[in-house]
Design a protein around this nucleic acid. Structure first.
Lengths: 192, 192
DNA sequence: AGGGTTGGTAGACACTGTCTACGTGCGGCC
DNA sequence: GGCCGCACGTAGACAGTGTCTACCAACCCT
């Protein structure tokens, strides 16, 4: 079964690289197969459908994102507020550094297909966020889940609108740090 | 030049309808042409490229969204805080009612192509938002532009993550009103 | 040693977006 | 009033795509 893992993993890796270079549209099934050095029918052994291969690549992206956030939190300060700021910064950095992959990770047709396994890939990260929020804001209202959801939506919105040009145009700013700071302050109070 | 307007407008309308029914992927150039009753080469007279036709459909969506928000604000109360809540609610309602079109409106390849005319389509709405924020929060820090940007990002994030399944899954809630309320309260203070 | 399964190839099919050559019918002009 | 020209649309070709099917080769297992 090692051979299976080989081509399967190679397809995911090569597909990810293609997306990094040319965006999601560069990752056609046949192009991925060509870049991996196999015929266009080969991927079908592992991914019955193009969408499932893309879902695997997206899942890989979530794994990397979660790992990157976790790694950054290991050497982050103990203050929950500062840790949450670290989480947010790493999240936005990831979106900036891997725009194509980030876009893929939130494509609605992937999400709706069910192949992505949304629950498994996104809940760990959301749990990190919720825990930090709960430690920062001990008040019961609004519940930490809601605040964490609002923060996540903000992060996602900033990532998309900023790096795709809408927010720089509208706010006239040059980097999203001010937006992020305003968001965190609004939801969690001014930093200590 | 009336004939021009006819087919041109029909393509935009028919394309929009296809997207409402089957999502952006249902709006292939040839399918739009078929639905409009013309040959597959006809759209080229008006839109040199599929992407430019899609951009026109997206622009149409922004026009509708702006009109819907403006109409709602006409009969909204005079209190700026309540007016902003109305704006946000109409925005989310639009995204929910026209998911395919909303997705199209924020497709990165459209935004990056320049055919969308992002400045023209999005600034009017952002200006409404900024004005309301400035009236609600007279303090200079953070500037109204930044708060408005953060709010817009939140709206966009809630619209995407909610209606695509991520946020309901993570927060366990059944509608996005709580998230919206938490966001507005955080940025603008508790409602009067 | 031989047979079945696993992992990959190769070709067909319908469909897509773009390009090009071709009609066709209307309006203006001498 | 006849003719030209052009705007508008048709039709076919081309490369590329995702999926499906038939084939093939190498390997494992008993």
């Amino acid at each position: 079964m090692q051979a299976d893992e080989d081509l399967r993993a190679r397809l995911i890796r090569v597909g990810g690289e293609l997306i990094e270079r040319g965006g999601p549209s560069a990752a056609s099934l046949r192009e991925i197969a060509r870049s991996a050095g196999v015929s266009h029918g080969a991927p079908r052994r592992y991914f019955p459908t193009h969408l499932e291969l893309l879902s695997a690549i997206a899942r890989d992206g979530f794994t990397h994102l979660t790992a990157q956030v976790s790694a950054a939190l290991v050497e982050a300060p103990g203050d929950p507020r500062a840790r949450l700021a670290t989480l947010a910064r790493v999240y936005l950095d990831f979106a900036a550094a891997h725009r194509g992959r980030y876009e893929l990770m939130f494509r609605h047709d992937l999400l709706e297909s069910g192949h992505l396994g949304l629950r498994d890939v996104s809940l760990p990260l959301f749990q990190l966020l919720t825990d930090l929020v709960a430690r920062i804001r001990p008040e019961p209202e609004p519940p930490a889940r809601v605040v964490a959801g609002a923060l996540w939506a903000s992060l996602h919105g900033i990532a998309q609108l900023w790096y795709w040009g809408s927010l720089p145009l509208a706010t006239g700013a040059t980097d999203p740090a001010a937006l992020l700071d305003a968001t965190l302050t609004a939801h969690l109070g001014r930093t200590a």
